Each structure stands twice: as C-alpha cells, then as structure tokens.
Simulated scan of single mutants.
Amino acid sequence: MHGIKRTRLTPQAAEAKKLKEQSKIEAYLALEQDVLGRKRRREYDIESLDQNTRLLDLNPEFYTIWNYRRNILLGLFPSLSPEEVVSHLTTDLRLTTSYLLVHPKVYWIWNHRKWCLESVPDGPGDTVKWKEEFWKGELKLVEKMLDADSRNFHAWDYRRYVLSSLPTQTPLSDELKYTQTKIESNFSNFSAWHCRTKTLSAIWEKEGTSQQEINRIKDEEFELITQALWTDPNDQSGWLYHRWLIGSEPPLEVLKREIKNIKDLYEAEPDSKWCINALAHYTLLLFKDPSTKQEDQSKLKEEARSLYKRLEEVDVDRKERYKDMGK
C-alpha cells in the first residue's frame, strides 16, 4: 500500500516462515485424517466431538464434517437428559454464530443451525414457550446479520425459515414493514424485493384477498418501485419487482400507465438496458391484449422491434439474443 514501507525478509526469516506454514499444513492434514478416520469407524463420543470442533474451527466449509458432527450428537443424545441435550445444542448455536461472523454465506453453517433448532427437545411445562425462546433468539441473530449485510440472500432465506417455524406466528404485516425498511435504506436490495413478493403473496393467499383489493395494493407498490427505478434505472432489482407487479395479464389501464411512466424514464435515461427491456416487454403485452385494435397492433410490434434494435446497441454482450427477440 502507498505510504507503507516494505520490509524484506532475511533468508533466515523467510525459511522460518516457510517451515511454520508447512508445520500448520501438516497439523491440519493430520487432524483431518484423524477426524475422517473416526467418521469411518463411526465413533460418536465426546473426544470425537472435540476433534470435530477443532477441524471446523480451521475449515467451517467442510460439509462432510458437519454431517459427521450431527451423527456424533445423535449418538450422544439418547444417554443425556433434555437439559444436557439443550446445552450441546446451545453450544453449537454459539459455535455457528462465531463462524457466520467470518463466513456469512456458507450454506452448511446455516443448515447446521436449522438442525440444532429442529432438535430442541420438549421442555418442562409449556413446551411452546420453551421452544419459542430459541426461535426468537434466531430472529434477533438474523436481523443483526442483515444489518451488517442487508443483501445477504442466505440470511433472507433463513429469516423466512425462522418466521415460518415460530410456534407463535409473527403477523405477515410486520414482515412487510421490515422489507420496506430495508428497501428504503437501499433500493438495490434484490433479496428484500424478493422477500416482499413472497410476503405479499402469502398475505393475499391467507386472507383470500379479492382481485380488486390486490390491484389497489399493487398501485401503492407501483409508487414505491417508481422511486427505486428513477433513483437507479440501471439496477436490475427494481425492474424484476416491477415485472412481478405487472404480471402476465395486468389491467389495461395499469399497463398503459406504466408504459407511459417508463417512456418518461427512457427519455431521461436512453442508455438504460433494463428500462428499454421493460418497455419492449410491456409493449408486447399491450400488443397481445384482446382489447388492442388491429390497426394499433402493427404499430406496437414495430415499437417493440425498434426497442430490441436499441438493446443490440446498448447491451452488446446479448446482441444475438435481442436479434432473436426482435424477429
């Protein structure tokens, strides 16, 4: 880096460093062989669990070792009290928390947390409340993870899993507010937009929402997404959400309104490939609408063809694809 004086290692220091690194590699390989040997011999005891932990500390992405860890714990649990089982599971939750701080997108770590939570035994008294404490703790953890990286799709998937698993269900309206908070802080948060589609769909299905009410809610969503599109017309996230709102058979007045709005944006951002792409797609939807007059169809087809020609210019890497679509 600029401004930092480089120091050259002496031959003796370089050799010492090399030997130290070689020693670490040899120690790791010896530990790996020990743990894999225990796995082959199906050794499910505390000593094997400790060795398993040592190896995961060095390499938490080693999914085979996670599988072995679960088998060790399953081998230990029958001889333990519920309190001792919970103690082991709590230790593993703490362990994976420390790993996730460094490796927040490793699937195997998230997967082991799910297994821990699903393995919590029934507790004394009110079992629902007993288990709910564990799930609520997970919700707090995943919120911290998303505060650190609001676009971590592993954390978003895990959040949906936790919410669906809570013994006492959290209102879906709360999740809708949460996604809006994340979106308003960063319009390019694809995972938050995606979660919003899932949440709205779940609300409509659960409440049996009428199509008229869905259209009204979508109109409010169009206002939110329009802010995002004008803020960054080159970000794919907002355009994908906009297309979800439009759907395959939108009301004609909505389709015409959104085409007009996007044309306004296109005038301001003539090189935005996502803007042109959306405009071409919606123009073809309008062309296919049963109420579109025949004399207007040829005009719409030519508009779409012209837009795909424009895409060939602004998105050269996909030129052949746009040629095919233009045909």
Results as ranks from 00 to 15, higher is better:
113 R>D: 02
13 A>G: 02
83 E>S: 12
312 E>T: 12
207 E>F: 05
309 K>R: 13
4 I>N: 05
160 R>S: 13
207 E>Y: 08
266 Y>S: 12
280 A>E: 10
277 N>K: 02
293 K>N: 13
191 S>I: 08
46 I>Q: 14
108 W>G: 04
155 A>M: 06
105 K>V: 02
278 A>S: 15
40 R>W: 01
222 F>T: 06
38 R>S: 07
20 K>W: 09
280 A>M: 09
300 L>H: 00
18 K>N: 10
313 E>D: 14
222 F>Y: 15
223 E>N: 11
283 T>G: 01
241 Y>E: 06
103 H>C: 12
71 N>L: 15
179 T>G: 06
226 T>I: 07
37 G>H: 07
49 L>F: 15
240 L>V: 10
79 S>P: 07
296 D>E: 15
199 T>K: 01
12 Q>P: 04
202 A>M: 02
153 F>V: 02
255 L>T: 05
280 A>P: 03
24 K>H: 09
323 K>N: 08
109 I>R: 07
291 S>V: 14
181 T>Y: 14
212 Q>H: 11
168 T>W: 10
84 E>Y: 06
39 K>M: 15
87 S>D: 15
75 G>A: 07
284 L>R: 14
279 L>T: 00
325 M>I: 02
251 P>N: 07
321 R>K: 12
11 P>K: 10
320 E>G: 04
142 V>Q: 07
320 E>F: 06
110 W>D: 08
184 E>D: 14
161 Y>P: 05
231 T>F: 15
42 R>L: 11
246 I>R: 00
155 A>W: 05
152 N>A: 08
102 V>F: 08
14 A>F: 09
146 L>F: 03
96 T>R: 04
246 I>F: 02
225 I>T: 11
27 A>R: 12
167 P>T: 07
68 Y>P: 00
321 R>V: 14
195 C>K: 01
60 P>C: 04
266 Y>Q: 14
137 G>Q: 07
258 E>C: 01
211 Q>G: 08
143 E>S: 13
295 E>M: 07
10 T>Q: 04
95 L>Q: 02
70 R>N: 02
316 V>Q: 13
120 V>R: 04
131 K>T: 00
44 Y>W: 13
47 E>H: 10
52 N>F: 03
232 D>C: 10
104 P>V: 04
107 Y>K: 01
156 W>R: 01
151 R>N: 10
194 H>W: 13
153 F>I: 07
142 V>R: 04
13 A>R: 05
49 L>E: 00
3 G>L: 08
267 E>A: 10
320 E>N: 11
90 T>M: 11
65 I>D: 01
175 E>K: 02
269 E>I: 03
106 V>T: 13
221 E>V: 02
316 V>L: 13
202 A>D: 06
197 T>E: 00
60 P>Q: 03
160 R>C: 11
306 S>A: 15
19 L>P: 01
49 L>Y: 10
